[in-house]
Amino acid sequence: MTKSQRDIIIFTAFGLAVMITPLLLRGNYLLNVFVFIGINTMLAVALNLLLGFAGQISLGHAAFFGLGAYISGILTTRYAFDPWMAMVAAALCVGVIAFIIGFPILKLKGHYLAMATLGFGIIVYIIFNETVDWTGGPSGMSGIPNLSLGPIIFDSYMTNYYLIWVFTLLTMLLSVNLANSRIGRALRAIHDSEVAARVMGVNVRLLKVQIFTVSALISALAGSLYAHTMTFIAPASFGFNFSVELVTMVIIGGLGSIYGSFLGAAILTLLPEFLRVFHDFDIVIYGLLLIVMTIFMPGGLIGGFEALAAAINRRKEA
């Protein structure tokens, strides 16, 4: 079995599992949690393209998510755009923004890159809060219309579930494809040695900006989907904390692993639900997880599983 055949099998199995999950879930509450897992997976996978593949951190990804949501929200509520058109417009707008700021931002490395993306995120967050006439300010924006497709209106938990997960699965599939391609390898090469990648003919600067743009564009799509399924958005969902949460998802799942990002997103979405009893404990746990995982399990959960499987195999052979 070749690697690409294995990829297809794994993806098909995962996709089927996603499709039948709602039939097994009892009640809207869980269904809604799974909608959020879908959105967060999409975001984590998008960030992983940048962080896990190319090794470039962004502490401002919540801003792209938020920009997608707000552009969609503003275009539909104020300018009577069709939601699908608004979604396309939001994704394109954010793509262009990311491409333009990508050049100066991605010239920076390591800590400086982290600070610059963080700064960008905070500026955007402040704009969401301050441009009250457009965004409704801190108290948010409501009445964003649902998406619809012919007779189907995506306004129930069930329809939203399938809507979101179709996009999420598509994002995952394309990312898996990308991972095992010329571009995916070039990105991982940048991660490991930027000089060597350049010397081998990889246009590092351009490729970083391209993947940053793609990553931002997917995040904006997720934001737009979020706005149209929730119909209400407020700045608090798009702040620094959420950017950090996204990074945590990617790290927990495993840098560069697409299914790891799903795992990370699922864990971080479920955790607060389970910890509801210990309200507010989640943030402490995120902090601990980030430290412990980085020190002891730099490959994330998926990396951990792989190491475990390898160890068991060796044991068997011995």
Binding site: L51, G55, I57, L59, G110, H111, A114, V244, V247, I251, D280, F281, I283, V284, I285, Y286, G287, L288, L289, L290, I291, T294, I295, P298
Partner: peptide, 16 residues
């Protein structure tokens, strides 16, 4: 990258 993440983790932990 790991150092950024570790120190962010510590900051969240202390704040939490």
């Amino acid at each position: 990258l790991s150092l950024v993440i570790i120190t962010i983790g510590a900051s969240i932990l202390i704040r939490g």
